[in-house]
Design a protein around this nucleic acid. Structure first.
Lengths: 224, 224
DNA sequence: ATGCAGAGTATTGTATACAAATATGGTTGG
DNA sequence: CCAACCATATTTGTATACAATACTCTGCAT
């Protein structure tokens, strides 16, 4: 069984990503320890990890809060992710193997099935998408690049917003994945990088479009 | 006064960067607590932070060791840094202010003085260099980008190797800084990005050249 | 009303004790 | 001689107690 600090980390993290713990909510160590059924020690460790993930911020007086992702923060994260995952795609293409290509194509099939439903299967789409991008990052073969991207892929609000994506956005995303797979098959690093970078930036715009259409509370300010 | 965990973090970090704690050395919590004059609790926190910085690795059985930076790891880190700091330079150029430009130019003067000594003042060069790059990263105005770059700029071995840089490498580095300042003054983001990316990659080659000339022990293997 | 001072409350930081897990070294059986 | 195994020593994980720090709310003075 996993360690208490891992369980606390996972529990708090998923509460943040799901929105159960809202932006700006204070994260008291005692209260979280209660919820997770452990002592403060593993909770403290979990909070520090989440802080490194930028899902949690601390004030200058050491109080922890759920990080507040303004629309600018999200744009910033996507811009960085576009650049870094572009690099990952190029490297992956340069060292592509049959096994990895299979993994990528099988992820694409999942996405294709999800997108073609009469009512698109968003959960399936997200699963396939996650697997596709994980495969690319693994194939890039850089622990460091993988670590940097780790803090950029999971963002609160963003995945939940996928449930409001337009069918056009979903179809375009799927065809871009196909195009990427083709570039990988040819070992065309420059092309893979260009497609991937554009793909992430378009994913951001799909998010921003869906986001604008929703009644989103203004992000409240949180101490630096 | 700073907190015990901060002192432990700084102490262990500088021991790693200076080489006092060599690659592959085991980092026992008890022993470090003794050295730092604190209990294990803050030491544990420091080790987790250093792990996030990738200066420390942990085995699958939770033992901590000083990370082993092979020449490939260093190349990888520089490649990422070149890309990200290129982004930072572009953003900085786009939002340049008179104050920031002053800060950058004053850092350049420090570099210029250090480089022009009959026997180059490497410590001064490194100080000016650090300040220059810190100013650019600050001016980019992205907390997230700054956080990602944080784990890439300080590398064990690398700075120590600067003491073996050739005069040509130092002069070229200085003139590149001047060229960057000029791009910033013009607000020329694309140019600043191009120069900065090349600048970092050349810094890597200066490192690799100096490194090859030294008697460097083969990196010993360390458990994953 | 507004701002400041102080006591009292709540929260975080550190040390320590003990439990759980892992490494080590020697012994035995093959 | 080697490998598997057990007892022991070492190391890490967690809980808890207490200290230090930060917050809050009241009352008072302006």
């Amino acid at each position: 069984m996993s360690r208490a600090s891992d369980r606390a980390y996972g529990a708090i993290r998923s509460m943040i990503l799901s929105g159960e713990l809202a932006s700006g909510a204070q994260l008291g160590e005692e209260a979280l320890a209660e919820v997770c059924g452990v002592s403060r020690t593993p909770v403290r460790e979990a909070l520090r990890r989440l802080e490194a993930d930028m899902l949690v911020v601390r004030t200058d007086t050491q109080r922890s809060f759920v990080a507040d992702w303004s629309i600018d923060d999200v744009a910033d994260a996507f811009e960085l992710r576009a650049k870094l995952e572009g690099m990952a795609a190029r490297r992956a293409a340069e060292r592509m193997t049959a096994e990895v290509l299979d993994r990528i194509r099988s992820a694409n099939r999942v996405i294709g099935v999800a997108v073609r439903q009469t009512k698109p299967d968003i959960a399936g789409f997200l699963d396939g998408n996650r697997e596709f991008h994980a495969a690319v990052i693994d194939a890039a073969g850089s622990r460091r690049l993988a670590a940097l991207l780790g803090s950029l892929v999971e963002q609160p609000v963003v995945w939940r917003t996928a449930y409001h994506y337009s069918r056009e956005a979903l179809n375009r995303s799927h065809s871009e994945h196909e195009e990427l797979a083709a570039a990988f098959a040819r070992g065309d690093g420059a092309w893979a990088e260009a497609i991937m970078t554009g793909h992430i930036l378009r994913a951001y715009h799909a998010y921003a479009d869906a986001h604008r259409g929703l009644a989103v509370p203004e992000p409240r300010e949180v101490a630096a």
